[in-house]
Simulated assay, not measured.
Amino acid sequence: GEPLADRVAARVSAEGTRGALAGALAALPARYRDVLLVVAWGDLDYAEAAEALGVPVGTVRSRLHRARKRVRAALGGADPTRTEDEEAEHG
């Protein structure tokens, strides 16, 4: 398949917030960014992400939560990392 970074870029450009999001991601500590990327755009579940990153599942959850909070703040409340399922769930 195509590299993760390319998939991310394609998805992000569709969000219309590419520049802002790129900046927000760049500002994240690498450990948060990695978790965000593999879960949000790598289509891995928490267990797979934990294995890929070599950290416990609890760490994946907490880092993902913090990463998303920072990205949302940087984008003024938008969260392009949410899946459609989550959108439907939370409205």
Rank of each mutant, 00 (worst) to 15 (best):
A67S: 06
L4T: 06
Y32K: 02
A78N: 12
L37K: 06
P29A: 15
T83Y: 05
A50P: 07
V57D: 09
Y46T: 04
R72E: 10
D6Q: 15
E15N: 13
E15W: 10
A10E: 14
P3N: 05
L53K: 03
R72W: 06
L36E: 07
A50I: 02
R72V: 00
A73Q: 13
A26Q: 12
Y32E: 08
L36P: 07
P3R: 11
L44Q: 11
A47P: 01
K69A: 03
A14E: 14
R11S: 05
E84D: 13
G91M: 02
R7C: 10
A74P: 02
R68H: 12
G54F: 00
V8M: 10
V8P: 02
G42F: 03
K69I: 03
V12A: 09
P56N: 09
L4K: 01
A5R: 13
R63P: 08
R61K: 13
R33D: 11
V12D: 01
A67N: 04
S13D: 15
V57S: 01
A40P: 00
A50E: 06
R33A: 12
S62V: 09
G91D: 09
P80Q: 08
G54W: 02
V38F: 00
K69W: 07
V8W: 00
V60H: 06
A52Y: 08
D34F: 04
R18Q: 12
L25F: 00
A88N: 04
L37F: 02
E51L: 11
A26L: 03
A26M: 08
G77K: 13
R63M: 11
E89V: 14
L44F: 08
R68L: 12
E84T: 15
R68M: 13
A88Q: 07
E84S: 12
R70T: 14
V35Y: 01
P80H: 03
V8Y: 03
A78R: 15
A9P: 04
R11E: 10
V71Y: 02
A14F: 11
E51W: 05
V60E: 01
A73T: 14
A9T: 11
D34Q: 07
G19K: 12
P56W: 04
E87V: 14
A47S: 09
V57G: 04
L25D: 04
Y32V: 01
R18D: 14
T59S: 06
R82D: 00
A67D: 02
G23W: 08
L21D: 03
V35F: 01
A73P: 09
P29K: 06
R33K: 15
T83R: 05
R31P: 01
L36I: 09
V60Q: 01
S62E: 10
G23H: 13
A30G: 08
R66T: 07
R11Y: 01
Y46A: 05
D85N: 12
R70K: 15
A47C: 09
L64W: 05
V71T: 01
A67P: 00
A10D: 11
E15S: 15
E2W: 09
A40K: 02
E51Q: 13
A78Y: 12
D45P: 10
V60L: 02
V55H: 06
A40H: 01
A5D: 15
R7G: 10
R66D: 05
V38Q: 00
D6I: 15
A49V: 07
D85E: 15
S13V: 15
A67L: 03
P3D: 10
D6R: 14
H90W: 11
A5S: 13
